[in-house]
Write a protein that binds this DNA or RNA. Structure first.
Lengths: 225, 225
DNA sequence: GCCCAATTTGTACAACTGTACAAATTGGGC
DNA sequence: GCCCAATTTGTACAGTTGTACAAATTGGGC
């Protein structure tokens, strides 16, 4: 009996899946990375799809719990703009930071989610939908309350962009480094979190200013259809 | 001799790759979709990697050409805000709209790029870096000129988020439909383009208001509305 | 020390992969 | 009508995949 082979297998699965996707990683790759045999995977998890499901559930629960916890704190802020900012941080931070000490880390799992959602793996897609939409809805509602009177459609789309930004920052951090000729470190996750939060803060907040000054450019956009 | 089997193979390759990624699609899948034999693929392209490269080059050139064309038009706008908006459209629109009539369509190719970049395929990664960074740099420079005095770092990150938003909107449009309980159609690409442009317009424009404060909320708190 | 269930290993299997290449087919130029 | 190069097909190959299952190993309870 190994110390806890099962845990090691799960950890290495996240790492490898997040690096190369679901299809490109074989059960033998995971076994080899864990210093174990292929059979141990079928023994512990039954199938590759069930392994994936187990990985998901292992990280999903604490991450969403943390998000809701931080969301609760954020909702106690009375100032709408500061609350908006806090809500955004409550959504983004748990995706980048390790949720429970010692696991693979939130960023690695989030990156895995990003890769799997792109791959269009049917198993993953179903699990994502089940596990995350409820939380996303709660956040959208909270965000919408910060900018009263704005159309819901804008919040839905911007929450989509927020997730896409988050995913791509984890998938392709080197592009940031490359584009800046090394000036900016794309792998600096603290900077990434701050930039994402600030950028989406501006995009959400602008939903409220639909009828005001400097709408000239906005008009330009909607006219040109 | 077939009408133009070669073209059909390329078209179907984009479609299938964009749907399930590079690894999950076999040459036999592509051949079958084209009503042809596996051997025709090795004959025309030599290998799977070379096929991918050919697909890339086929779409990359006209898409970037279109982007630069629209960028040139945008740069003739004197008003900084309207120019900012036009530059963003010049970047986003060619990614969604078919570049040359009759090909697979810009959105399908862009979606393929998104999936491949997530999969971390080495071939694709190299091609992306070669082909797109130069154009991206030109856009970042143009954007930065619209918001003078703002730190370059912010433009780099926001261009990353713009690309991530764009990708994710194409990868997972159904999430938008689902989150809105069917009210918003995530597959409405015209709406997606407008939303992306408006959201990133706000995020880029907000860079100008920065005066060294760490968070926008703090800045807002100390400002007068 | 022995037992027995839990675990781990080893191996076999059919299906599928990308690639290679000989054979068959095609169709325009003469 | 025939030729010949271009194209398409068919098939074979070695390697990898997920899964199944018998055999070997482990280690705590007695």
């Amino acid at each position: 009996m190994r110390p806890n082979l099962r845990e090691a297998l799960l950890r290495n699965a996240v790492t490898l899946f997040s690096r190369s996707g679901y299809n490109a990683v074989s059960l033998r790759d995971i076994a080899k990375a864990s210093g174990a045999n292929v059979g141990s995977l079928t023994y512990h998890f039954g199938s590759k799809a069930k392994l994936l499901r187990e990985v998901y559930e292992r990280h999903t629960v604490p991450m969403n719990a943390r998000r809701r916890e931080l969301l609760g704190e954020a909702l106690r802020i009375s100032d709408a703009d500061q609350r908006l900012m806090a809500i955004l941080r409550a959504y983004v931070v748990p995706a980048f930071v390790s949720s429970s000490e010692g696991d693979g880390g939130g960023a690695e799992f989030t990156r895995m989610r990003a890769v799997l959602s792109a791959e269009g793996n049917p198993d993953a897609q179903a699990i994502i939908a089940d596990a995350f939409d409820e939380t996303s809805r709660a956040f959208i509602k909270a965000l919408a309350d910060c900018v009263p009177g704005a159309p819901l459609e804008g919040f839905i789309w911007r929450s989509q962009f927020l997730l896409g930004s988050l995913y791509y920052a984890l998938i392709n951090p080197d592009r940031v480094t490359r584009l800046s000729s090394g000036t900016v470190d794309g792998n600096d996750r603290e900077a990434a979190v701050n930039q994402i939060v600030e950028a989406s803060y501006a995009s959400f907040r602008s939903l409220g200013a639909e009828v005001g000054q400097s709408t000239a450019a906005l008009k330009y956009a909607t006219e040109e259809k």
